[in-house]
Nucleic acid binder design. Sequence first.
DNA 1: ATATTCATGTAACAAGTTACATGATTAG
DNA 2: CTAATCATGTAACTTGTTACATGAATAT
Lengths: 188, 188
Amino acid sequence: MEGMALRHAISSTLLVLGEASGYDLSKEFDGARANFWVATPQQLYRELERMESDGVIVARTVEQEKRPNKRVFRLTDAGCAELAAFTATTPRATAIRDELMVQVQAVEVGDPAAVCDAVGALRDAAAAKLAYYERIERTWLGDRGRAELLADVHLGGPYLTLLRGLSFERENVAWAELALPVLRARIA
Amino acid sequence: MEGMALRHAISSTLLVLGEASGYDLSKEFDGARANFWVATPQQLYRELERMESDGVIVARTVEQEKRPNKRVFRLTDAGCAELAAFTATTPRATAIRDELMVQVQAVEVGDPAAVCDAVGALRDAAAAKLAYYERIERTWLGDRGRAELLADVHLGGPYLTLLRGLSFERENVAWAELALPVLRARIA
DNA sequence: ATATTCATGTAACAAGTTACATGATTAG
DNA sequence: CTAATCATGTAACTTGTTACATGAATAT
């Protein structure tokens, strides 16, 4: 039962969404949207096959007229039990691998203008994600307060992860705003 | 020249440290210390071999009396040029994969007490890293101000990455403090 | 006594990336 | 008319993880 992390990430997403196609999931796990897990469509289709043959998810084919047919998946009871068991295991520490920071660290011998551009791109991407998360938050909150949403049986957990995404992206924007003038001063 | 990210991460570390052994680097890239890149000793020894045979680093054997001999590496001019060229490329977006968040998302069907323990462990690990980064910051700052250190030709870049690590770990601690009471309330 | 630190590796395996392939529909 | 979206895959390749192996010196 070791090292099936992508699987559990898919399960936890299906738990919240109820049903989703491979394509839907590839959007959820895309870098531009994903809050705590990214995966390529290829990884997802491969894993979904395995999960289906292991009986942790089941597929239902949705016939569409103007769009290609799609297979939507949902968690089975066995899949839900597997996910529940996973919450009781010790999670692996997150492995950070940030190419932009490698560039910032090496800016002394490198190209400050290019690093500036990359930091600007990070700021823009982070700001866009932030706006996206804030829209979700407003939808979930409705007219409730933060404490009430956190206490909600279904959305409390997802809201905690959303709050993490929110503060992470805010931090990204703030760091980029700090770094940009420092790096600009290095452009010869 | 695609996908040699670990290599550039090693190069940028050697740029700051000057010289380091595989063992030294395995400490720098360990999850408990690493600011923006983690790698196992096995990855490092494998990559260091390749880097040496490609001439981007050179080794020097340091004979020790009470300790096993070690081979310390430093960047060559070719290695420095390669690193400089890397700073001008578009960095890949960081891939987030956080098992703890998967557990938090699934807490509704899972084990809230176990998830609480895991969040507590995150808080402790983040607090320890924060203290470690703050020690480094004090050392680098000396009696200078933040702006002066950022303007330092050699340490300005590394200080920017350190500041990012600092705010990231502060954010981790703050999120954990917010999440803990919410999750505790779920323990039946 | 026992565990941790120092110091370096090999081998097998699991996970993630990139390139390619198909083909209709709709938005600009 | 061109690009993006919807929708799913195969194949080859590169990275990253885990288990194992060695062996002396300190710290508890």
